[in-house]
């Protein structure tokens, strides 16, 4: 019983983060058909913002807010400066631009900060644990669940209840038609990048919380996680991204829990094998777009 609860909590906390990451990636993909390879660097930027603020007397929550805003601003800024000029040209041009932006951010971090890992400040709460019903839980894990699910609820309400949210869903489904109804392209794309950056910022707080450090290459793993989750769940649908996030977490935690230790080192291989199988037999992902 306790084992089962532990398992569920692990899946829920990891899955909630994965779901948010996947959502941030698929939101932009849905509208522009662009896999934004610079997405992981938004997490890096949030991390370095925390690091740079670490000496300041600000309360941690304010630092965290600054980090989230930095990720959001970086996301919106890259759209303005890098993607918008090549948007009309071709998808390939945008893809290459996103590689370029990713490399640029990483190199800036290497050059101006350090190739080595830097500590980021975290609240004491993150390293504490509590006992509930005789079981020990990390507060950070429970917080990740609560915050992520609140984000998902907020996000769902936004997408269903506001005109802008409805326009965003419509644009993810059929961008050209949405524009023909008068929804400005720059508005929806700008909002999509803003939300994407915001989600990356929130994820960053918990992602960095695991190691309490940031380094230039830190964005790669979250990018891959988000990408795999969206492929699993279905690139065409926002619900799919969330489902994909939880399924990927279920697989990851499942492998860690049930496979013999010798095989756990190969868990990436298992994960990617599953991705290949899904691409082969259900290329549209678990959740169909239409």
């Amino acid at each position: 019983m306790n084992e089962a609860i532990r398992f569920i909590v692990d899946v829920a906390s990891l899955g909630s983060l994965y779901a948010l990451m996947a959502l941030g990636l698929v939101l932009v993909y849905g509208i522009l058909r662009l896999v934004n390879f610079a997405y992981g660097e938004l997490i890096m930027i949030a991390g370095y913002t925390l690091y740079l603020l670490s000496g300041s007397p600000l309360p941690w929550l304010v630092m965290a807010a600054c980090a989230v805003v930095a990720a959001l601003a970086a996301s919106v800024l890259t759209e303005r400066v890098a993607f918008r000029p090549v948007r009309e040209k071709s998808l390939t041009a945008m893809l290459i631009t996103s590689f370029a932006v990713s490399t640029l951010f990483q190199n800036a971090a290497l050059l101006f900060i350090s190739p080595r890992a830097r500590l980021v400040p975290l609240p004491d709460l993150f390293s504490e644990s509590i006992v509930i019903g005789g079981m020990l839980f990390f507060v950070r894990e429970l917080l990740a669940i609560v915050v992520s699910i609140s984000m998902l609820v907020l996000f769902t309400a936004l997408l269903n209840r506001t005109v802008l949210g409805i326009a965003l869903r419509a644009a993810a489904d059929n961008f050209r038609m949405t524009r023909m109804l008068g929804v400005p392209a720059n508005l929806v794309i700008g909002v999509a990048f803003a939300i994407s950056g915001f989600l990356a910022g929130i994820v960053a707080l918990f992602w960095l919380g695991r190691t309490a450090s940031v380094m230039p290459g830190i964005g790669l793993e979250p990018l891959i996680v988000a990408f795999v989750a969206t492929v699993l769940g279905g690139m065409q649908s926002l619900v799919g991204a969330v489902v994909g996030g939880y399924v990927l977490a279920l697989m990851t935690v499942g492998i860690n829990t049930f496979l013999p230790q010798a095989l756990v080192d190969y868990r990436q291989a298992f994960t990617f094998s599953l991705v290949i199988l899904i691409l082969l037999f259900r290329p549209e992902g678990l959740v169909r777009g239409k």
Partner: peptide
């Protein structure tokens, strides 16, 4: 827009 409701489709028409 198939995933939106009829009313949401009309709402966008009036965007």
């Amino acid at each position: 827009f198939p995933t939106l409701t009829v009313q949401q489709n009309l709402r966008l028409g009036a965007f």
